[in-house]
Nucleic acid binder design. Structure first.
Length: 844
RNA sequence: GCCCGGGUGGCGGAACGGCAGACGCGGCGGUCUCAAAAACCGCUGGGGGAAACCCCAUGAGGGUUCGAUUCCCUCCCCGGGCACCA
């Protein structure tokens, strides 16, 4: 008899596995591959319950896949560049590199202590020059393909992080994703990756991802924001009101309302604004609006709570559909960075234009009427404009009939309507407009004004302009002697930025911005396939063998950010001929958060349950099994100490069972009794658990997978309680003990290994064994008990032999006492027999 | 406003259209013990009944079906994403 002691067995097997290279893999064309990937962590130093959950899920999937005969790649690495290292360095006076590498060591030790089955030979650390040089190489390839651009535009600036941010990194109501400060808009020259070139494909290929949660796909589709619009060209008039050659194009989703356009709007930031008004009587009023708009914070503006303000420019444009001249106003609710920054205003059909028209006394001609609108009878049939005002309290944006709309009058209007198509076609024929597609997705701003990142490999030459660093000069090494505590960045470091132009050899300045860390995490999963390669970014053959990743596991917070960027990188690398697949991650599992009393665990809140403490008490196996048992993986879970205690009890129970059975086997006692019902019940329970546990792991229902193992243990205890020692079926018990050990192996790798090798005396590792075979015939019982319903309610139970013919079942069911009670005095209209399931009697 | 999720015992959660609540936590009662811990056994949705059993119950209301937590429609509530997006 031995006692379950995780503290002695867990470290022992961890060392043994590592010594034996148990989790080291190479390509093997003869076996099916499986790439199980978890989002690599930022090395913050300590592991938290979110890590435990994320990486345990991956580990169970990986171990189960191995037992099912797959050649499994299960790597780990560190997303090691980023701001926290700089902030910590400023605080502690150490170097970001020192801080980062030390954290990687402690975190790796914690991961080893959890018993995760990583191939440690493939570790990737994004702050290693051996890694980031290939990030720079990819950047140069993007540049060659015209996907890199340095340009000036209004960008998001985080005052706290002192750097610019990509659109995706501004979350909620205009705050920085990392520090939650309110983001400011600044006009700056920055580096962009042209992700918008792939907008349509990024959207379309979501359909190629049936293994992704709907939620994530919906979020990406929302973010990409495709809308089918019409472009309409308005002709600008000069100050005297005469049409010029200049046209201003607007986007609209409602070309059917074009006849209701009674004014025209420009965003305050629109470049035309100052040209139109400079030196005119309208200049000061317009300047005021521009100044006011500049002061509005992005938060205020995003909430749409501001009262709309505007000013007339003194100019007009010609509405192409009816030749009408409408006034051009500047309005603060028109956004420069959506569409063209110019809008045709249709106050009767758009609530914002409606408010604006009311405020400034502009006309509101109705053009689309609801089917029950009283104006319908008054305006029906009139093609010409007869009414310029409505008494409505709001604009009407629904479907309806067109009135006073020229030749389109009486057509059906609305989104995706007859009138909409007709107007667009009419404009197209005359070269005044066209159907078009608009995306909300913006190009990815990747430059950061921070030190601890991957340097952008570019040189500014006064003669040649922007020059890429030649490939053979890579990597542009991040210098280690920058004094971060003094607030220095690369821009303060002449030794770094003073250089010569690769093209002309003249004096030039090296780019001092670094890349967004999300560029590093957009291709690390490819590097895992060929981590040590120092001659190329990776060997396409190796990537071709392992990719795409069969299963990706990580937090929902990357639903857009990392997952969108990685999809983009994959598509570009494919177009470069380095990959043959369209999507990097075939299946995605987004795990829920680990909370305490409903609140997110955080150090600042002081409500953190430290994994180390739990390991110290119950061992890593109990923690692993518990965090999977408490809830399905995609749901948030609330931490419970009692639940962990319960898992500890179960592991002890399972341990004792295997230990006791092994003891009895050694004693050689017990004789199998043929046809013993208790033994066949245990036999059935065993195979039911084998089937359910495997199926449930395959569909990531780890909680029910574990509960099926618990049922097996309960069944074995029942058997041993009910059957005297001398009458127990020894081979069956032994089979239960070994299969139980195998079923638990993915969840509790250390305990299973100890039971397998020490208690059950096996030679090879339990983690090199096959998943136990399920025998469907074992589930077939001689007799079955069927519930019998009368009018949908269970009234009795019927025990019959499994192969009883239907008419015998019907007869026996109708003869059951409680069935007779409920059918007495009524006519049996129908009897439904669902074989092996139930009997349903219909009376009336 | 648009788009996704989700509402089941005291709690976490189970249920290919087929006995609602598996498994676990917690609670109650018991065995063992001088006692406690551990372990083991039993009970544990609500109501009625001595019992056999009966009634109610998966956010609300309809529908399809012999049969609905599950499928369809309408609505309510909670969580998340997008949004002065033209």
């Amino acid at each position: 008899m031995t006692k379950y002691d995780p503290h002695s067995i867990e470290p022992k097997w961890q060392e043994s596995w590592e010594r034996d290279g148990l989790y080291h893999v190479t390509e093997d064309p003869d076996r099916p591959k499986k790439y199980i990937l978890e989002m690599f962590p930022y090395p913050s130093g300590d592991i938290h319950m979110g890590h435990v959950r994320n990486y345990t899920i991956g580990d169970v999937i990986a171990r189960h896949a191995v037992m099912n005969g797959a050649n499994v790649l299960h790597p780990i690495g560190w997303d090691a560049f980023g701001l926290p290292a700089e902030n910590a360095a400023i605080k502690s006076g150490s170097h970001p590199a020192t801080w980062t590498y030390a954290n990687i060591e402690t975190q790796a030790a914690s991961f080893r202590r959890m018993g995760f089955s990583y191939d440690w030979d493939r570790v990737v650390r994004t702050c290693d020059p051996e890694y980031y040089r290939w990030g720079q190489w990819i950047f140069l390839k993007f540049w060659e393909r015209g996907l890199v651009e340095r340009r000036s535009s209004p960008v998001n600036w985080c005052p706290s992080c002192k750097t610019v941010l990509a659109n995706e990194q501004v979350v909620g109501e205009g705050v920085c994703w990392r520090c939650k400060s309110v983001v400011e808009k600044r006009e700056l020259e920055q580096w962009f990756l042209k992700i918008t070139e792939y907008s349509q494909e990024l959207l379309d290929d979501l359909d190629k991802l049936p293994g992704w949660p709907e939620r994530v796909k919906a979020m990406q589709a929302n973010w990409i924001g495709r809308s089918e619009v019409a472009e309409v060209d308005f002709t600008l008039c000069d100050a005297a009101g005469e049409p010029t050659d200049e046209r201003i194009t607007v986007f609209t989703t409602r070309p059917d309302t074009l006849f209701g356009c009674s004014f025209f709007l420009l965003a305050p930031e629109h470049p035309l604004v100052s040209l139109l008004v400079s030196g005119t009587e309208y200049e000061s009023a317009v300047a005021e609006i521009v100044a006011l708009a500049a002061k509005e914070t992005s938060v205020e503006r995003a909430r749409g709570e501001l009262e709309k303000r505007g000013a007339f420019t003194g100019r007009h444009v010609v509405n192409p559909v009816n030749g009408e001249k409408v006034p051009v106003w500047v309005a603060d609710y028109v956004l420069m960075d959506y569409g063209t920054g110019a809008v045709m205003a249709v106050p009767s059909g758009d609530e914002r234009d409606f408010e604006f028209a009311r405020k400034y006394g502009l006309p509101i001609p109705p053009v689309v009427l609801a089917d029950d609108d009283p104006l319908l009878s008054k305006l029906a049939g009139s093609r010409e404009r007869v009414l310029d005002e409505v008494e409505w309290p709001h604009a009407f944006s629904g479907d309806g009939f067109l009135v006073q709309s020229g030749e389109f009058t009486e057509m059906r209007g609305g989104k995706d309507s007859e009138a909409m198509r007709a107007v667009t076609a009419w404009l197209d024929e005359r070269g005044l407009g066209r159907a078009s597609i608009n995306f909300r997705l913006r190009d990815w701003l990747i430059s950061r004004q921070r030190y601890w990142g991957n340097p952008i490999p570019a040189v500014h030459c006064p003669e040649c302009g922007l020059v890429p660093v030649p490939e053979e000069q890579l990597p542009v090494v991040l210098p280690m002697d920058v004094d971060i505590t003094a607030g220095e960045t690369l821009a303060d470091h002449p030794e770094f930025y003073e250089t010569t132009c690769p093209k002309c050899g003249g004096a030039a300045r090296r780019e001092t911005d670094t890349m967004d860390t999300f560029t590093c995490s957009s291709w690390y999963y490819l590097r895992y396939c060929d981590a040590g390669n120092d001659a190329a970014v990776f060997d396409p053959a190796k990537v071709g063998y392992w990719m795409p990743a069969d299963q990706y596991i990580g937090g929902i917070e990357h639903a857009i950010l990392h997952l969108l960027y990685s999809r983009f990188f994959t598509k570009v690398l494919r177009d470069m001929g380095l990959a043959t697949f369209d999507e990097p991650f075939t299946n995605l599992l987004t795990q829920g958060m680990v909370k305490l009393d409903g609140a997110t665990m955080s150090k600042s809140r002081g409500n953190v349950v430290a994994p180390e403490d739990m390991i110290a008490r119950y061992g890593a196996d109990a923690l692993r099994a518990y965090i999977l048992f408490i809830a399905p993986p995609d749901k948030d879970l609330d931490w419970s100490y009692g639940g962990l205690e319960g898992m500890w009890r179960f592991l002890n129970r399972a341990w004792r069972l295997v230990d006791d059975i092994a003891g009895e086997a050694a004693d050689g006692c017990g004789v199998a009794a043929a046809g013993d019902p208790a033994a066949s019940a245990l036999h059935r329970a065993l195979h039911a658990s084998i089937a359910k546990c495997g199926d449930d792991i395959a569909r990531f229902q780890f909680n029910t997978a574990l509960s099926s193992v618990m049922e097996l243990v309960n069944a074995a205890y029942d058997y041993r309680r009910d059957v005297a020692v001398g009458s127990r079926d020894l081979p069956l018990q032994h089979k239960v003990a070994t299969d139980l050990t195998l079923l638990l192996a993915p969840f509790t790798p250390h305990m299973s290994e100890e039971l397998w090798r020490e208690t059950l005396g096996q030679r090879d590792s339990v983690h090199r064994q096959s998943w136990p075979l399920f025998d469907p015939t074992a589930l077939v019982a001689d007799e079955i008990t069927l519930p019998v319903q009368v009018n949908g309610k269970v009234r009795d139970r019927l025990t019959v032999s499994a192969d009883a013919p239907e008419k015998d079942i019907v007869a026996a069911a109708l003869a059951l006492p409680n069935v007779m009670t409920h059918t007495a005095g009524k006519t049996v209209r129908k009897v439904v027999v669902v074989p092996g399931r139930l009997v349903s009697v219909v009376v009336g």
